[in-house]
Nucleic acid binder design. Structure first.
Length: 465
RNA sequence: CGGGAAGUAGCUCAGCCUGGUAGAGCACUACGUUCGGGACGUAGGGGCCGGAGGUUCGAAUCCUCUCUUCCCGACCA
């Protein structure tokens, strides 16, 4: 991101998008910029994702064949939001920031350091710095038996911070989408197992998004606790310097055969056995590994997990009754993923000279459909059918029906980086065939229209979640 | 809150040092050719050079002030 020439001056820094300039090709950069802005009027046009000819952007009266790419680009963060909403079920998040300070339960929030403020009506309020307190309070009120444990609750919401200096687009803004998990266990062993499960799950989650995330021992910071790891991905444009053992780069994340009920400690141990530290923890004078094993790079933090025991459960009274009638104070941990910044991180880690290379996990669309000749009846009919079939199958699709040159459409589709490209042109459609291209590998093949349903079914079950 | 840069065409920039009334690429308009991997030719349109003072016969250019933006640091996912 740092080298992408955009609207920046001097150093050539730019906002999103974040792939670096590989060639000084202004056309790509111009196109990239057109993809960026959240759509100015796209809200009214939600639901269909088509690429438009520039004509469409001129005014409401202009004939609309499709919609300009940037109209659809607001979908990237929106898709993340939608996914989050879907995962959460309907309705707004339950966890909000402020609470009445006079509430006896909330009162204990002050004891653990929550910020006390007075609002314009001179009411005393407490600002919850994190959702830990709220979640803990919910559990304290709702969970009363050891039989309900262990429990793992999650909270997905946009968070807001008074960021001193917002920069790098979605990487560091005043608002960001965050997913947090909170584990509740009866004892330390259980809590440690919960921690390990999330540790492994996060390794796999990042791997599925095409990211090599390296767990690094981290400060527990304001959340507290005595066990914590940051998940950092390496990118030239990372926000901070990181140092780690070369061996970590060669390790393979756990595969599909992980059994989360087994003891995961050995797996965690192998990942934490090697040296890895961010610059604020790295002391060049006291580095335990030799220079030839030490990798110096830049990293982006994409997740942070904590074990913090009874820090919140104790003061907030999150207890259950055990089998012997004893009161048990719960052991807790929390596990966060920066969802919105992941969008930027993925692009940093996955791009080439032609643009973004979205992994299937994380891509705003799974399929890009290109109509090479929009005024050809056969092509248009085929595309409409394919488009509706894909949508019916739940496959998120961007349909490029602009009246543009073929080359421009291919290049734009590569730039946007959608994993699968379906190309419909007069040459192939005569024989009932369309072209399939995979963005990541560049491999192209022809498939028959008849067989498309199977292809769609495979895609729909493969990557959608 | 400190430090450093930049403001000139829709966009990215050159011109400024050595004052003489503004250029390039892309984008845009028209016509023709082209049309399955970001086409080409010809002809065009478009800028009171961020703002205000000052120096000068003359200021984008030199001086002063001012506004805005960007970058770096502290902080943080």
């Amino acid at each position: 991101m740092r080298r992408c020439p955009g609207n920046g001056h001097g150093q050539g820094r730019a906002q999103f998008p974040t792939f670096r300039r590989a060639t000084p090709d202004r056309r790509k950069i111009d196109a990239a910029q057109s993809v960026v802005p959240a759509d100015p009027e796209g809200n009214a046009r939600r639901g269909e994702d088509r690429v438009a000819s520039p004509d469409a952007a001129r005014g409401p009266c202009a004939p609309v064949r499709g919609r300009h790419l940037y109209m659809a680009a607001g979908r990237v963060p929106r898709a993340a939001q939608d996914r989050a909403d879907r995962a959460r079920g309907a309705g707004p998040g339950r966890c909000t920031g402020s609470a009445d300070a006079d509430d006896p339960v909330r009162g204990t929030l002050a004891e653990i350091g929550a910020l006390r403020i007075t609002d314009r009506h001179e009411r005393e309020m407490l600002y919850g710095p994190t959702a830990e307190e709220v979640i803990t309070d919910i559990v304290a009120n709702e969970i009363t038996s050891y039989r309900d444990l262990p429990k793992n609750l999650y909270n997905i919401q946009w968070k807001f911070r008074d960021e001193v200096r917002p920069r790098f687009g979605v990487m560091r803004g005043r608002e960001f989408l965050m997913k947090d998990n909170y584990s509740f266990d009866l004892d330390y062993e259980g809590a440690r197992h919960s921690y390990n499960k999330m540790f492994v799950a996060y390794l796999r989650t990042y791997a599925r998004m095409g990211l090599k995330a390296i767990p690094m021992a981290a400060d527990t910071g304001p959340i507290g606790g005595d066990l914590s790891h940051e998940f950092i991905i390496l990118a030239d444009t990372g926000e901070s310097a990181v140092f780690c053992d070369r061996a970590l780069l060669e390790m393979t994340p756990p595969g599909d055969d992980v059994d989360y009920d087994n003891d995961l400690q050995p797996t965690v141990d192998t990942w934490t056995a090697h040296y890895a530290a961010t610059d604020d923890k790295h002391d060049p004078g006291a580095c335990p590994i030799s220079g030839d094993r030490l990798v110096t790079a830049r990293g982006i933090e994409v997740g942070h997990i904590f074990y913090f025991g009874k820090k919140y459960s104790e003061p907030l009274g999150a207890t259950v009754q055990g089998p012997d009638g004893q009161t048990i104070t719960l052991e807790m941990g929390s596990y966060g993923i920066g969802v919105s910044r992941l969008v930027g991180a993925i692009i940093e880690a996955s791009h080439d000279d032609n643009g973004i290379v979205w992994p299937e996990y994380g891509s705003p669309w799974l399929v890009g459909l290109i109509n090479l000749k929009v005024d050809d009846g056969d092509c248009a009919d085929a595309c409409e059918k394919i488009y509706s079939d894909l949508r019916a199958a739940g496959v998120e699709t961007l349909y490029d029906d602009r009246d543009e040159r073929a080359g421009a459409k291919f290049a734009d589709m590569d730039l946007v980086g959608i994993p699968w490209q379906l190309t419909v042109g007069p040459r192939g459609i005569k024989d009932g065939k369309i072209e399939v291209k995979h963005r990541g590998t560049g491999e192209k093949s022809e498939i028959a229209l008849d067989g498309l349903a199977d292809w769609i079914a495979a895609r729909a079950s493969g990557a959608a979640s």
